[in-house]
Design a protein around this nucleic acid. Structure first.
Lengths: 169, 169
DNA sequence: TGTAGATTGACAGTATACTTACAATATCGG
DNA sequence: CCGATATTGTAAGTATACTGTCAATCTACA
């Protein structure tokens, strides 16, 4: 015999993992923006700055792989960072299509100065949990994100994305 | 003595809770959209349909509280659902500012038909984890979202948002 | 009663996050 | 060497997700 479909209640929404992930992302962004309000930098812009700092002379496509970000979205992010004079774009000599990304002095200073605020934000997100639970959650989430990597439209390609990035400039 | 600042590496990004939440949200939306592609419905539109189904005659402001959604964003969502003829907006007799929301026949049918796909999507999101770990993650995440509720810009107001919603008309 | 203050939906503006398409350029197979 | 194919950055289009502001309307208090 076929089973009856469950009645549709708000619980179908509130207990769904997808809803909880969306909600937690909202909260995380909200906390980040609040802690970093003095710097007028969004989480995504921050991640881009860190990646460019770590890999000077990276191009937009590789940057998108390194922070698991859609290339199109990244175009706008880069534009904003450039207009705020935090990064520079220089044409590559080897490939006329490519524009290489570098932090400006101002960008490097911003990154250095914002770190404590970012750290505070990350702590605040998990603050309500008991320390042991924080660790458990992070471990499980790290696992899940890693194992689900290919399910996202823009999988993370941390290392191998940079294989061909050698002599930049 | 002051401690040296940690060197800035991509690990500062990859291990940050905020990054993991963003990444997991990307993955969750991607899986949802894939499983529900036959219905052309986004996670947010689905949540709105469920809420309107559960609370017929709800208005936009209360709906935003019930699914923890910014009112401005919701305006566009409602517009799209209306243009797809999944919901109807009727002016309230009691308050000329308010427009009450109802599912259409088509919207109710859509909601009924999409449930199995939504269910599959939710299962897929956690699939890579061991069953016990899925439960642990959901428990911790539920706790964290609840305890952080006020930290978000649009806190969830599930029940009390509907206190004054009685005789809709 | 009558007005100050709150609420409601709408709109404009910013910032992700994705899709598809496109021109310029590179690369590879024959 | 040359044409098919791939890559790069850009752009247009859709959909969240927020910030403000605004006019219309409602409520409550003096």
């Amino acid at each position: 015999m076929p089973s009856k479909p469950a009645p549709i209640t708000m619980d179908a929404v509130y207990t769904a993992p997808g809803y909880l992930f969306r909600r937690m992302q909202q909260i995380a962004v909200s906390i980040f923006v609040e802690e970093c309000s003095a710097f007028d930098l969004t989480p995504v812009q921050y991640a881009a700055l860190v990646a460019i700092h770590t890999h000077p002379g990276i191009d937009a496509t590789r940057l998108s792989a390194v922070i698991a970000f859609d290339r199109s979205t990244l175009g706008n992010v880069i534009e904003r960072l450039e207009s705020k004079a935090l990064i520079e774009r220089k044409p590559s000599r080897e490939d006329k299509r490519v524009k290489l990304l570098y932090l400006t002095k101002s960008g490097a200073a911003m990154l250095r100065d914002i770190m404590p605020s970012v750290e505070r934000a990350q702590v605040r997100m998990l603050q309500p949990l008991k320390p042991a639970d924080r660790k458990t959650l992070l471990t499980l989430l790290t696992q899940l994100v890693d194992l689900n990597n290919e399910a996202s439209r823009v999988p993370l390609r941390a290392e191998d994305a940079l294989e061909h990035l050698g002599k930049a400039g």
